[in-house]
């Protein structure tokens, strides 16, 4: 089975009903995407398919219909995505387990809305849980990233 992940063509030999999350982590070694609940209740496994956020624990690899981007492909250490940069600036992460999913959801939000209000952020990010409760810092970082994107 062929997949496009972070701009590279990858070949995997797996059953089509295997969750994409398993393929990313166990077959391709891309462990930045996290397993949280396994039932689309927490958002930790969020990746992009053709630029749209999707819970990779709920998407069977055989049902992938577009290019996949994971946290590893969103930016690089030398050239961070605006959301990743803001995450560092605001020191958002506490335990950090949810942050790759949070960042992927925030990146999609800003692709469609570069000046989100608090309500816009709450609506777009409500499916991404943070058990450390860093929501105020998540919100602040998204606003900083929005400003950077507007200035770019």
């Amino acid at each position: 089975m062929k997949l496009s992940v972070n701009g590279k063509d990858r070949e995997v030999d797996v059953e089509p009903d295997m969750p994409l999350l398993w393929v990313l982590r166990d077959e391709l070694g891309l462990t930045g995407t996290k397993y949280g609940c396994g039932v689309a209740q927490c958002g930790a496994c969020t990746v992009h398919m053709d630029g749209l956020a999707v819970r990779s624990c709920q998407l069977a690899v055989g049902d992938v219909t577009g290019d996949i981007t994971t946290i590893e492909g969103l930016g690089t250490p030398d050239s961070l995505h605006a959301v990743q940069d803001a995450w560092v600036e605001h020191q958002v992460a506490q335990c950090g387990y949810c942050q790759s999913g949070q960042i992927m959801s925030a990146a999609q939000l800003l692709d469609f809305n570069d000046s989100p209000t608090d309500a816009d952020i709450d609506a777009a990010m409500g499916g991404n849980l943070c058990r450390c409760g860093t929501y105020p810092r998540i919100r602040a970082a998204i606003k900083s990233a929005a400003q950077k994107i507007q200035e770019a």
């Binding site: 089509p16 689309a40 819970r55 069977a60 055989g62 049902d63 777009a124 409500g126």
Partner: peptide
């Protein structure tokens, strides 16, 4: 406008019969 239903309720292939066996998972 915010989170697409399909973010969690992913679109499955037609020939996959037992996609919704897990309690609490988003139906697809």
């Amino acid at each position: 406008e915010a989170v697409l239903c399909s973010t969690c309720h992913t679109t499955k292939s037609e020939d996959w019969e037992n996609a919704n066996t897990t309690p609490h998972a988003a139906p697809r």
